[in-house]
Amino acid sequence: MGNLSKLASLCILLTFWACSFTKKTTQLPKILVFSATKGFRHNSIAAGKTALLKMGYENKWHVDTTEDASVFTAANLAQFAAVVFLNTTGGILNDEQQIAFQTYIQAGGGFVGIHSASDTESDWPWYNNLVGACFESHPVPQVAAFTVNDKNHPTVSFMPDTVRRQEEIYNFKSFKKELVNVVLTVEESSYTGGKMPGFHPIAWYHNYDGGKAFYTAWGHAPQAFSEPFFLQHIAEAIKWATIK
């Protein structure tokens, strides 16, 4: 084989390797982390973004973080395996953006809501059903006993039956008990300020309107996003939400 032929073969091989690498790179699951606020703003958002970017690296996900609601178009959302609402608050999407997000879920998209995602879009019934409840109030952050309700679900399967940790514990209104499957509850006798005696849900999941949704009320403080225990909870939620 002449030098030119060898050079041509080498170029073809290098091109194949480059294309293969590009294909593998573009096939990484893409996760959108959205943290816009139009109400109270948690000082844990920055820590949450950092943790989720690191989580993406560890799990071979491509993670995009943004607070720009203009990314909520049907064409743009279609590239993401899951959308994470990281401590969002208030009315953060306009009518067109709401329709795009609804279309995304109806097409089989995944959703993970963290903490104040339940204090978001309170006037949008479809979103309230997606999350599964609306935030009502909370006492001061304190240590409480949380109970695992479904050991078979990956978001809690690694936990002991009872977990004690400090958290800002949400009370909910309009909880959609008939729609969701609860994986964590809190024992109201273990702290003060609970307003849902008998059954106080903290984390749950469901299939909704063609897509998948998981919500956890954990995630108030910056320290939460350095707790391996909590981070595994979130990582498993994202994995679950991306499985079709």
Score class of each variant (00 low, 15 high):
Ile45Gly: 13
Ile114Asn: 04
Ala213Ile: 05
His42Arg: 01
Asn87His: 01
Gly193Asp: 04
Trp204Cys: 02
Phe172Gln: 03
Ser118Phe: 05
Val140Glu: 09
Gln232Glu: 14
Leu32Asp: 05
Asn149Asp: 05
Ile105Cys: 08
Phe146Pro: 06
Leu13Val: 13
Tyr57Ala: 12
Ile105Pro: 04
Tyr205Asn: 07
Gln106Ser: 11
Ala82Asp: 02
Phe21Ile: 12
Gln27Arg: 10
Phe72Arg: 09
Leu77Val: 03
Val131Met: 08
Pro228Tyr: 08
Phe16Leu: 15
Glu96Leu: 12
Ser70Ile: 01
Glu227Leu: 14
Leu130Cys: 11
Ala74His: 06
Tyr57Ile: 10
Phe214Arg: 04
Phe175His: 04
Ala81His: 14
Leu53Phe: 00
Gly193Arg: 04
Thr120Phe: 00
Lys195Arg: 14
Ser137Trp: 03
Thr162Ser: 11
Phe158Leu: 09
Val163Leu: 15
Lys30Phe: 00
Ala145Glu: 14
Thr88Cys: 11
His153Leu: 09
Pro228Glu: 07
Phe34Thr: 05
Cys19Trp: 12
His138Ala: 07
Lys54Asp: 12
Phe230Ser: 06
Thr15Tyr: 00
Val63Ser: 00
Ala82Lys: 03
Val143Thr: 15
Asp95Pro: 00
Ser9Arg: 14
Phe230Glu: 01
Val186His: 00
Val182Met: 01
Ser174Val: 01
Gly194Pro: 10
Val182Pro: 03
Ala133Gly: 13
Ser190Asp: 14
Cys134Tyr: 04
Phe16His: 05
Tyr170Pro: 07
Trp17Gln: 14
Thr66Met: 07
Cys11Ala: 14
Phe214Pro: 06
Gln79Phe: 01
Asp119His: 11
Thr22Glu: 10
Val182Asp: 03
Ile105Ala: 06
Gly113Thr: 00
Phe111Arg: 05
Ser174Tyr: 05
Tyr170Phe: 15
Asp123Pro: 00
Val182Lys: 01
Thr216Pro: 04
Gln166Cys: 11
His233Val: 06
Leu130Gln: 05
Pro141Ile: 10
Leu14Met: 14
Pro222Ser: 01
Phe172Thr: 13
His115Tyr: 11
Pro222Gln: 01
Thr242Arg: 08
Phe175Thr: 04
Val180Pro: 06
Ala145His: 10
Ile243Asp: 14
Thr88Trp: 02
Glu167Lys: 06
Ser116Arg: 08
Asn43Val: 13
Pro141Leu: 06
Phe40Tyr: 15
Gly198Tyr: 05
Leu231Phe: 12
Val183Ala: 09
Pro228Leu: 10
Phe85Tyr: 13
Ala144His: 04
Leu231His: 10
Ile169Tyr: 02
Pro139Gly: 15
Trp204Ile: 10
Ala203Glu: 13
Ala241Lys: 02
Asp150Leu: 08
Ser174Ala: 13
Glu96Asp: 15
Tyr104Asn: 07
Glu136Ala: 13
Lys38Tyr: 13
Lys244Asp: 09
His153Ala: 05
Ala144Ile: 07
Glu167His: 07
Gly90Thr: 01
Ile238Trp: 03
Ala117Met: 06
Phe175Met: 02
Met196Pro: 07
Asn94Phe: 07
Asn129Gly: 11
